[in-house]
């Protein structure tokens, strides 16, 4: 049995780029086999929580879209940055100026937004105009101590019509302009993974994160004490793992023609032992050698 797969009780699944590619008509296209894989994970008795940096829609709308694409998913199973940001704003008495997608605004309905004393930036997509960025910049530069809260810090993601800049690029733009460092709510922030784990009731050492982003998903989860699997779907580009700093190599990488969840679920019976067997079997076919996988885990 592969040492690294011991005692897995729960999975955290990234959504965009792992379960589906967003964009286009209908809001996206499922990645082959992924809806079936989610069903199998659930049938196996493994705990499952979806851990996403999606900020282009409210959780309700997002879940509805995924259900429409054939996924077995509910709002309570989704950990997303906007609700986490709302908690943080309330705790600290912050009144945000929002630079977010129009469809995300309802998440902030209960938040006082008058006379703003911070800026919250999310993946605003078309709302990332010069005028809107400038407005956020002027709010920040006008504050005695600028507070910038970023919903994730991803560099880019893949939509059906190609790669798109993610919130991280615009977060950096404002950081550079105002000489501040943003507080990140969402992956790869440790607190965010911890809240997703708490929802599942599984400690980090018994959970695996599956995602397509080497920094936000793999690096973030590993820093939190979890193991992580990088899938070669979504934004994955060959050779990119080495370009950015993560604590260690992903624990496993899977090929695009079989989604990670599928790989696990395909071999999963109803017990943990079956999952471990599946991971071991899969380790033989993944690009990274078994010994390298073992080395990553000592």
């Amino acid at each position: 049995m592969a040492a690294w797969a011991r005692a897995v009780r729960g999975l955290l699944l990234d959504i965009s780029g792992v379960l589906y590619d967003s964009g286009g008509e209908g809001g996206g296209v499922p990645i082959a086999g992924s809806a079936e894989a989610v069903r199998r994970i659930k049938a196996s008795g493994l705990k499952l929580q979806f851990c996403t940096n999606e900020t282009q829609a409210t959780r309700e709308k997002f879940v509805k879209k995924l259900q429409g694409l054939g996924f077995d998913i509910s709002v309570a199973e989704v950990t997303a940055p906007a609700p986490a940001a709302c908690r943080l704003l309330k705790e600290r008495g912050l009144r945000p100026h929002l630079l977010v997608h129009d469809d995300l605004v309802p998440e902030f309905a209960d938040i006082d937004k008058t006379n703003p004393n911070c800026v919250v930036i999310g993946d605003a997509a078309e709302n990332f105009s010069y005028a809107n960025l400038n407005e956020a910049f002027r709010v920040l530069i006008g504050l005695e101590k600028p507070v910038l809260i970023s919903l994730g810090k991803g560099r880019y993601y893949k939509e059906t019509d190609g790669l798109k800049l993610d919130v991280g690029a615009y977060m950096k733009a404002l950081e550079y302009a105002c000489d501040v460092e943003a507080e990140v709510v969402g992956k790869p922030a440790k607190a965010f993974f911890e809240s997703a784990l708490a929802e599942m009731g599984v400690p980090p050492e018994q959970a695996i994160m599956i995602g397509d982003d080497i920094v936000s998903d793999v690096g973030g989860a590993q820093q939190c004490g979890m193991r992580a699997v990088q899938v070669r779907t979504g934004k994955y580009r060959s050779g990119c793992s080495g370009a950015v700093q993560v604590p260690k190599e992903p624990n496993l990488s899977w090929d695009a023609d079989s989604s990670a969840a599928g790989c696990i679920a395909a071999h999963t019976g109803s017990s943990e032992v079956a999952l471990q067997g599946a991971v071991l079997e899969q380790a033989h076919v993944c690009a990274r050698s078994k010994s390298r996988v073992s080395a990553a885990w000592g």
Partner: peptide, 10 residues
């Protein structure tokens, strides 16, 4: 600068 910095980061 900010737009250059954003592209550099991404």
């Amino acid at each position: 600068g900010p737009f250059v910095a954003g592209l550099e980061y991404a």
